[in-house]
Write a protein that binds this DNA or RNA. Sequence first.
DNA 1: CCGTTTCATGACACCGATGTCATGACACCG
DNA 2: CGGTGTCATGACATCGGTGTCATGAAACGG
Lengths: 362, 362
Amino acid sequence: MSTIYDVARRAGVSPKTVSRVLNSDGPVGEKTREAVEAAMRELGYVRSNAARMMRAQKSGIIGLITGAISTKNQPSTQQGLPDLYIVQGIQRALESSGMTVMIADTAGRNDRVPHLIDTFLSHRVEGLIYVAEYHQEVNLTQLPDDTPLVLANCFDARGTPAVVPDDRRLQRDLVRRLIAAGHRRIAYLSLRPDMVAGRLRPQGYREALEEAGLPFDPALLQHVDFDQPEIGPQLLWDTIDRMLQLDQPPSVLCCGNDQMAMMVYGILRSMGRKVPDEIGVAGFDNYRAIAETLYPPLTTVDLPYNAIGVRAGERLMQLISGDGRNDHSPVQVAGPVHWRASVTELRPENVISFKTPREEKQ
Amino acid sequence: MSTIYDVARRAGVSPKTVSRVLNSDGPVGEKTREAVEAAMRELGYVRSNAARMMRAQKSGIIGLITGAISTKNQPSTQQGLPDLYIVQGIQRALESSGMTVMIADTAGRNDRVPHLIDTFLSHRVEGLIYVAEYHQEVNLTQLPDDTPLVLANCFDARGTPAVVPDDRRLQRDLVRRLIAAGHRRIAYLSLRPDMVAGRLRPQGYREALEEAGLPFDPALLQHVDFDQPEIGPQLLWDTIDRMLQLDQPPSVLCCGNDQMAMMVYGILRSMGRKVPDEIGVAGFDNYRAIAETLYPPLTTVDLPYNAIGVRAGERLMQLISGDGRNDHSPVQVAGPVHWRASVTELRPENVISFKTPREEKQ
DNA sequence: CCGTTTCATGACACCGATGTCATGACACCG
DNA sequence: CGGTGTCATGACATCGGTGTCATGAAACGG
């Protein structure tokens, strides 16, 4: 691979002049510039990042640690790959800055994280982002260095800058919407309470009920460990069965996530209950491969992974450029409700208030 | 960040000696080694890859180009993220070699590929892998350089080393298994024929029929563009309806992929047909988030994305180490059938032949 | 006890790009 | 016409490791 020296020789100038052409510092004569550019083209010259970053003491590299790519071995993981969208968002946010993103995968083993961090440091990354597979608290080994770190989809006790989904608010918005559609008996099938989402989402559910003056019925809030290998479907079946046996059964089942909702579809139909006519189903995530393909399509709320990534990327760029605003509270990100055919509008008159001005004009 | 010079000064030795400790070339006295290691620990020394690769003229970096991370904007993409498993496989294959994998995302725009390649070349990557979102033919701009390139999940007309799924064989194996289970009228709902999978998989289906001496009925092989935004479900509904109206309706619906199978579940149930008692459903991909969670779980065949990645990584390492075996035929990878509850065994006696020796002992 | 080999270590150059400073050629101004 | 400023360009050092070669000391053999 050719170097600036090769280019310089071919163009009959000094290496420094080639450098000037490359970087547009200092002045370069018109003819010289053309000669240099021609030489570069002819040699297929590509500038060496290694030499460059060595001199400049800047790598232009951002390190990204994620389990996204190999999450499937973990037993209790729900759908698996959503945090890929976070990575996508990060890339989008960093694209304009000219940074190169280097992604390392934990391969499902958290004990490899220190090694990955070491590799990144040896590349002299200018910043690090750790992306968790699902909203959780983490505890990374302290970075020995002053390299900035941002946590995405997770947080820690040290107050490291973090960006997380606003589970509470998202669930509240969805349940609000269900209430607005006329539903009064809303069941909530929650994820395990040892997951952050399994705690925050039920909170949002209860908040929406309270706001609307609806009573909270403990019988309608159940935690279900639905993704257990064997017994998961049984647990879910049993929980739904009990709810439907109640004196006042629910008119809609709110599920902890879209994958649970998919399983609920099958169970309800095996029970001979029609969705949405006899009972509605709502999800959480807007995991589109599921939500849009299910039949009928699933009402759910957008867990904005993309936005989380973008925000995390932006936050990191701030830190790198020295904007050390010590915001110890994590950034919370929310997203829109997606209303689809899996829940009926019990009171059609309510629908009107949800039309946009534009639609009303038509 | 400290350098070998800092370490050397602290340990009272020369930089070269520190280098020797790092790389275990040349001999180093016991005491000296300890002093150097202590100094490194105290300073939190991490060796600079930039300087290293500059001297060694080796970057230790593999470039990976994929649309995996941002595929969702594309209109005609089926499920979206499976090629992430390919990336995982590649990482696994390259892990032991000490290479660092740098992933670049096309952000859904193929016109960015040349730019990404340039970035990689400026990092002096030692090899490149291009990962396609689904099995397809591609046409990358010729690499100006002698950097080795491997295609994963795609191939080109130039005979670039490639690793692809063996769609034909996978489908044949699945249909064989259905036939072994006693099914004789097997319908095939294919993906669009302009996709490679939409051509190869039906071929495998027909091969399995021929092998078994079963007649091929054109009415049972239909292409369905099921993931069209609006009309997809309608098209699918209509196709299934027609098939079920036949004099000899099928006993099992073989779907082009798992996502289509998920949609078929909903449609069959809305038609009042029970799965698997009245009609069986089979998928393709073993997209576990769907196949295992659907109710009943889906019989499907493993599209071995992981293995494709591993093979691609291995192939690239061969090329880098100079093993230029000019294998112009793409490597074809297959995987196992996953038999789950969505298809019944019509003739139980057949099941015996599928028991493993171990099971028979019990 | 002297010549030769082995061991432990250091001096120095080099990889490729770029920051600093110097140099020569003009142009401009009083 | 001499002094000064601008422009175009190059020489040289530098970033942090590592390959090459040299050096001095200890060990070994006869």
